[in-house]
Amino acid sequence: MSNKLGVFGLEGKVAVVTGAGAGIGEACARMFAQAGAAVMLSDINVEACERIAAELNAEGLQAKAIRLDVTSEADWEALKIALEGWKNRWDILLNNAGIYIGGMLENNTVAQVSKINQINIESVFIGTRTAAESMKPGGCFGSGGSIINLSSIAGLVGVPGHSIYGATKGAVRSLSKHSAVEFAKFGYGVRVNSLHPGLIETAMGDQALQDFVDIGVVANVDEAAALLKSAMIPMGRLGNVQDIANAALFLASDASSYVTGIELTVDGGFCAA
């Protein structure tokens, strides 16, 4: 698609991806770099980001790695300084880092809820705040931008074993809409949208499949995948990270210039059924 990118290209833009060391975040970071952006890969696993950034650099693409724990306000401040020193620009933030904690609701603990809320919700709040205040007119970068928040179909519909995880994703959906409307009304030039993948083949996807086994829905992970494909996902396959990266590119690029506050489901038809 490289020669036909047109308005879907990201030339001259600077993108930050959280949780870029693996899975969906890694695929999005690679996609953004291929589309021409300078990409700051961030994760608590900075070694993974360094390895991926080096691979991208070797292909002649622009990428850099930074350690960023999304729950740390200090790390977000340090990110801003790193961006100032790199390209002195910031156009795109993909709030992707997140964790999954499953289990039956009656077995979940308050400690689990606090932890998942902090990593999946509080982080999106801090990241969105940091990006908006620096992207808005008069902010330290000041040229507007696009924020993409990873929610999930679990933020839209009910799934057994997904109560506390799904609640965080529902919060991300709602935070995205409120901030989108606020930033638009106040002329920030910052668009905010939520992305809702179905079950994607990553470490977290495997965890979710295992959870269906643990709560007794199915006997093993193969059966879990088979059940999803045959009875729940109309397209009959799990999603892959590239499916999500393509949609993220649309939301990141100027191709979505009139898109803000929406939910983009990329789920093989799951929510349409």
Partner: peptide, 30 residues
């Protein structure tokens, strides 16, 4: 601006999207 979203859905880049709704409304329905 609307055409760009339509082209995205038409292309193979929307490979895992079916039965989805793509809203492009400047935040109207949010």
């Amino acid at each position: 601006e609307i055409a760009k979203g339509i082209v995205f859905l038409a292309s193979d880049d929307a490979s895992y999207m079916t039965g989805s709704e793509l809203i492009m409304d400047g935040g109207y329905t949010a």
